[in-house]
């Protein structure tokens, strides 16, 4: 395989534009997934009979091939970025939902009860106690979901919103490996960067974990 380095230098602007386009699809997809997963997870956590159902549905949605899902969404949302975002959101749910439920499960019953016993309401306890304590597990899910989404965005190039994935179709049609390799590397770097950002965010949000054990 020969890499044409010249192509890279003449296309830096394109690469940057595609990367931004990639993020414009991936970031909203994960955020939307989180917005949907959090309340659903609370329901699944509190109402035992619904847990299996909700997790089961998200598992089945996960098995639908991504390309097919985009195509099936076309009649509803058309050839828009919304289609790409909606499709990717569906895939984030499987991870986000499972991790959020597990995170809420991991909150010690005693701590939750102490909060209620001190006169904090159910919602207050959820927001002030349960979510913060579940945060490490939820964030682990957000990290996996983000990495997964960033790698999946390229499938949406079929409907024109694949970001970096555009390079794969391009290279495939022209039998030109350079942009394909650039695309793979770029996707990996983007996933890595996103993961690093999330690690820092989590670190900032959980000061109690940073402090060592008893001094």
């Amino acid at each position: 395989m020969t890499i044409e380095w010249g192509w890279l230098t003449t296309h830096t602007d394109d690469l940057l534009a595609l990367t931004l386009d990639h993020l414009a699809t991936a970031v909203p997809a994960v955020l939307l997934g989180l917005l949907i997963a959090l309340p659903l997870a609370v329901v699944a956590h509190r109402v035992r009979p619904l847990r299996g159902l909700l997790l089961g549905i998200s598992n089945i949605m996960f098995t639908v091939p991504s390309l097919a899902l985009f195509v099936l969404l076309l009649p509803i949302t058309g050839l828009t970025r919304t289609t790409a975002i909606a499709g990717l959101t569906v895939y984030t749910l499987v991870v986000l939902l499972r991790n959020t439920v597990e995170g809420l499960d991991s909150v010690p019953a005693k701590v939750r009860e102490a909060s209620l016993a001190m006169g904090r309401g159910s919602l207050g306890t959820l927001v002030k106690v349960e979510f913060p304590l579940a945060l490490p597990v939820i964030m682990a899910g957000v990290r996996v979901a983000s990495v997964m989404t960033i790698s999946l965005v390229s499938v949406a190039s079929y409907i024109g919103y694949g970001g970096i994935g555009q390079l794969f179709t391009d290279g495939f049609q022209r039998s030109f490996p350079t942009p394909v390799l650039a695309g793979v590397v770029l996707t990996l770097l983007l996933a890595l960067a996103a993961d690093a950002v999330l690690v820092v965010v989590q670190w900032l949000c959980t000061p109690w974990i940073r402090k060592g054990a008893r001094a």
Binding site: L152, G165, L167, F168, G171, F172, V180
Partner: peptide, 13 residues
């Protein structure tokens, strides 16, 4: 890292 590999990209490459 492996999770981040875009399948379409790898196949094409």
């Amino acid at each position: 890292f492996g999770r981040a590999l875009p399948t379409v990209g790898i196949v094409t490459l």
